[in-house]
Amino acid sequence: MGRFHRHEDGTAHDHGHDHAHGHEHDHAHRHDHDLGDHSGYDTGPQRVSVLEHIFGENDDAADANRAALCAAGVVCLNVMSSPGAGKTALLERTLSHLQGSVRAGVIQGDIETSLDADRLAGLGAQISLLNTANGFGGECHLDAPMVANALGRIDLDALELLFVENVGNLVCPAEFDVGAHHRVMVCSITEGEDKPLKYPVMFRAVELVLVNKIDLLPHLDFDLALLEANLRTINPHATVLKVSTRTEHGLDDWYAWLRARLAEEPVAALR
């Protein structure tokens, strides 16, 4: 709270004020119209009602992306997770599995490399890489305008299914609608049971949670029941599938879930 400004010498500070809000106090520059103003017009600060959603521009772009996908008959999934949870491994397995039966594509958000895209090349899918930085770190999420750029480089008419592999991060991607029809996440058991409680916005944003690296369960002190209880506290309605992208355990359930989504009419509006 406070006045934000920066001085000529480059320092910046904030004049904090912790009073209860409402701002009924007088502003020093408010004029007394009865005494001084004979112009016939109101002067002094005017309150302008804005009521505009700060993500409005992104949301409009997301709606446009979704409309383009719907028009082309493409079902789009926004795949999110922390770094290293197994998004790319999941897509490697999935593209191999779908090759020859479902025409799939991937928009891949990678902070600075093409390493992930290289892993997915040669699996029969169209890949569009979105590097979100200049080589030394960068954006923490994909937003709808970025995805719109990537969509422009993809032949949507040749696709049935499009994965948007988001930047590995459990905070920011949850806030940005990219224009997908479904939001899913990969949560690996090496991350700890408490993650749904620590990142509730992400865990609430998705309709499917793939609990990955389940093959490691005998080697870890991981309480799977606690993870599921925490997840249910945050998102009671999410579908939960236990998988291992390494051993392919449980992946048939994921493929069945995908085919069910492909069989549905894509939903035009989602937020």
């Binding site: 502003h27 520059h29 004029h31 112009s39 017009y41 109101d42 002067t43 002094g44 600060p45 005017q46 309150r47 302008v48 009602s49 804005v50 009521l51 505009e52 959603h53 700060i54 993500f55």
Partner: peptide
């Protein structure tokens, strides 16, 4: 919610 609710502006004369 995450929105700009309102702003106060000076009119041109002010």
């Amino acid at each position: 919610e995450f929105m700009v609710e309102s702003i106060e502006v000076e009119d041109e004369e002010d």
